[in-house]
Structures are given as C-alpha cells and as structure tokens.
Amino acid sequence: MTTKNENLSPTDSMQLINSMINQAKNNFSENGFLYLVWGWLIFTCSICHFIFLKLDLFKQPEIVWASCWLAVIFQIIYLSRQKKKEKVKTYSENIVNYIWISFGICMFIVVIIMSKTNNWPMMNSIILMLYGTPTFLSGIGMQFKPLVIGGIICWCLAILSVFIPPIYVLLLLAAAVLAAWIVPGYLLSTKYKLQNKQ
C-alpha cells in the first residue's frame, strides 16, 4: 500500500474503508481454549460428583469442585500471558471480558448466599441459569451462534432442573457445559485455526 492520493477516487476511498473495516471485524482472536478447559472441568466434576453420590463412595463428594480453584489460578496465569501476545483489542472483546468477570463475581456471591442460607439443592439450578447469561451474551458479542444456542440450552435446563430430583441436576450441569462450552469451544478452536492458516 502506498501514500499516493492523486488517483484515489471517492469510490476507491469508500472501497478501501469498507475493506479495512471488514478486515478488522473478521479478526477473530477467541481460540476457545478457556471454554474447553472450563467445559471439561465442570463436565468431569459433575459426573464424578454424581457417581460419588450414587455409589455413596465419599462422605463429602462435593470436594471434587475444589479443583475449580486450580482452574481459576491457571486462568489468571494464562490470561496474563495471552494479554502480552495480543496485537489488537476490539470493543466487543472488551465487553465480553467484562461479562465473564461479572459472571465470576455472581458465582462467588451465589456460593456465599447458598452457604449462608443452607439452600444447596437450589444452587445447581441457579448456576445453570448463570451459565446461560454470559454464554448467550458472548455469542451475541462475538456473533457466534453456537454460544447463543448454548446459552439458551442452559436456561432451558435451569427450568427443567426444578422438576427432577436434585441428584440428577448434576447430569444437567454436565449436559449444559457440553452444549454451552465444550461444543462451541471446539468450533471456536477450529475457526481460529482456519483463520490463522489463511
């Protein structure tokens, strides 16, 4: 590209503006890695918790969820490294980041409320509803339909969860993360790899 302007007609200028805006818009920086990390972690924890409860293997089967703290530490380190590699910051990425931060804060508050009110059976239903919101909004922000669908599935499962015995809600949690994070995570990863190949 040059700095010439003699031959730059209004049509050329408009075409150049459109092409550059599209290039910036199509720069997809979400590789889906964290969706997969959290998706598989929650999926495994839900299934393990269900098996431990069903077979009465441990006194405190909910201990499996402590592994989420390790994932939080891993995520902080991973994101601080990724931030250094970023070449461009978009407005939608910024909004999506804040959506997930607010989700993390809501999860923390829910755990405090539930532990204080001792209303644990309700917790998984509320968590299912909370999973849906950032997933749906991220999908809208990134214009990525699988996340939008995943978010809607979480909300449907949250409604379903109040009609089944609490132990089976753990299986709904696994189904929710499969639909909302694992499947979209693999699709995001494929999309990201394809973009970087071009």
Binding site: N5, L8, I21, A24, Y91, E93, N94
Partner: peptide, 17 residues
C-alpha cells in the same frame, strides 16, 4: 491518502492495535 486512510479505517473498528 491510501495508507493513512487504511490505518484510520482499521483503528475506527477496534479499541487499539
């Protein structure tokens, strides 16, 4: 100018680059 217009058009769509 072609290059300056391209730079500004790219930056108008992102927060920073």
């Amino acid at each position: 100018s072609q290059l300056r217009l391209a730079v500004v058009s790219l930056l108008i769509s992102v927060r920073e680059a």
